[in-house]
Design a protein around this nucleic acid. Structure first.
Lengths: 338, 338
DNA sequence: GGCTGGCACTCGGACGGACAGAGTGCCAGG
DNA sequence: CCTGGCACTCTGTCCGTCCGAGTGCCAGCC
């Protein structure tokens, strides 16, 4: 077990390194933080911390930098979450309040998060898994061509074109629309298949083909839309670590382009509370020198999706976590209102 | 006027520099391209080209590199558009044919273009300016709350929530829906305001407030949706010029995040045919060391939007132009079919 | 036992000179 | 108008030196 002072030393190393981006030595530490002991003492502590794997030196006779394990301890035990200041809170709220629709909410959230944290922001669109159907609309475009429009309670709208096996009359279509809505409106996506199962039986034989086609398209849409989308922003912030540049930035950009990777990344994070994945804790290799701070957000008590930021392991964890938490909270409010 | 051989020298310089990314000297030129003259002669030609401002040397006693003006001449006079090979064409078509909806078409196009050119791809969503209304749907969600869904002939769907000044009955809503569609379905966006102008007059006094609210929301949506959206991809390709790195990449990433900038960029490009903007020809400062190759695409003869790539001025113009043109052509086909 | 000051040691980064190589401009001759 | 030759310039690189920061260890002190 590490003594109290050694933990303080580790905390100081993390803080200094995050600030200066340079390995920190024993002398600088005692000067900048009022540790009340001499550099030599700190050196002993550092040696112990290094033995335990919390810090490392890039070269002999250089200062120390935290390892992933060191950051982990820092995040878990040594650092709190820095709350946003009241002006910041107001700014967040003002910025998000202007949104006109779901796309806009997500877009604004991304921008906001990127600006606040000065890092790359990732925001997942509200998932449909827990969503309910608000309305299903069927439009006749041509005798044997129907457009299906699905509207969800989160304000998302999806449409599909359907080629019917036989021409379908306005009356049948209206009938189908009415029956369909009376069964599925307000219901969860996951319940829909069961609810429409026997619907074709209510129709004349000649329309059954069309009804089945429409239903299967609807079910497909529900499933497909569970493949979640997301929006990213603030990639220009990656250039802030001009340091070890081309080495790290390319795989990160590549990862960010692969929505699949990002979705998996967010998916792996815990469902409740804030998750911080540091360096090699990320399964995806390209992100081994980055940390991901993510948290679920949602309109009610339930989290419907996640948002977070991707930045260098050397990041300001308390500040970043504070910003992420605050933004998630306000986005949840906005969604609940609309 | 430049002699034929000097133009050949310029062409050779551009080609070599694009290939090697290094200033090219007189000796290498005569060796790699069968110019049939000695290095000394080429040197004279190079001196002339430099006087005219087509090439420059980074330092005394280094090879020459093309200037923006040099690339311009190269693109205008010396280089053709390299057509895609048949296998490439097939690959393009296969890749795009799998798309299920408009979002998917755009997403696939971005990916494809980024891969083909190994540069940053930008694809504008089909513009609504020349679009027509396919259908307007009104859904009653609550006594005084209506959802407006607008469907366009390009397959785009937009929805808006409307709070009505007074409760509105199903019957009135159905009436409004029918009248509205009979007037605007199949019409161009730009004609809609004129067509619905006197619509409130057809309704009872108590419903007029609601009708006006709905109409103004519809008009707003039409206008707003003219603010075009776009999708970008392939930003990881920016890291390929590891060369003059942090200097150029940051402003470019910033520009790419600003959709406004990109839209303006595409907007400035000519409406017909392919446009190449080289280096300082781009109004936006951050893109001064990049070139933008763009072209309109559309379902019929008309271009409904633009797509293109952003890359270093030192790019393979013939190949890039060929890829951009081919992709635009196939996307047009896909849109026409759906 | 833990903290401290002192000391020798190591190593990376900066500085500077020497050198090779590439490329140029110019000139005289074919 | 082209060509070969020549002197010149500049960059990039290599190497040796030097300085400073930081360390580890040890003996002494509280």
């Amino acid at each position: 077990m590490l003594s109290e002072r050694r933990l303080q030393v580790l905390r100081a190393i993390v803080q200094d390194y995050v600030g200066t981006e340079e390995p920190v030595g024993s002398k600088a530490l005692t000067e900048r933080h009022g540790l009340g002991v001499s550099p030599a003492t700190v050196r002993n502590d550092m040696a112990a911390l290094e033995d335990e794997g919390y810090i490392a030196q890039p070269h002999t006779s250089a200062g120390r930098i935290p390892t992933d394990k060191g950051y982990r301890l820092f995040v878990d035990k040594l650092a709190g979450v820095k709350p946003m200041t009241p002006p910041e809170r107001r700014a967040i709220q003002n910025f998000l309040d202007g949104a006109v629709d779901l796309d806009d909410v997500v877009a604004r959230t991304v921008r906001l998060l990127a600006q606040l944290t000065r890092q790359v922001a990732v925001v997942q669109y509200p998932s449909l898994t827990r969503s309910t159907v608000r309305h299903v609309e069927l439009l006749s475009l041509a005798p044997a061509r129907v457009m299906l429009v699905l509207i969800t309670d989160t304000g998302r709208v999806e449409q599909r074109m359907i080629d019917c096996p036989a021409p379908v009359g306005e009356a049948s279509l209206a009938d189908l629309r009415a029956r369909l809505n009376s069964r599925v409106a307000g219901r969860r996506f996951t319940d829909v298949p069961r609810l429409v199962e026997d619907l074709p039986d209510a129709f004349d034989v000649e329309d059954r083909g069309t009804v089945s086609t429409v239903l299967s398209t609807l079910l497909e849409t529900l499933v497909e839309e569970n493949e979640e989308r997301l929006m990213i922003g603030g990639t220009a912030n990656l250039t802030r670590f001009t340091h070890d540049f081309p080495l790290t930035i390319q795989p990160v950009l590549e990862a960010l382009e692969e929505q699949v990777v990002l979705l998996k990344l967010l998916g792996e994070a815990g469902d409740s509370g804030m998750t911080v994945r540091i360096g090699h804790e990320n399964a995806y290799e390209g992100l081994n020198s980055t940390s991901v701070v993510s948290v679920g957000y949602g309109s009610g008590g339930e989290a419907v999706a996640k948002l977070g930021v991707v930045g260098p392991t050397r990041m300001d964890y308390p500040g970043t976590m504070g910003a992420v938490r605050a933004v998630a909270r306000y986005v949840g409010q906005i969604l609940a209102e609309s």
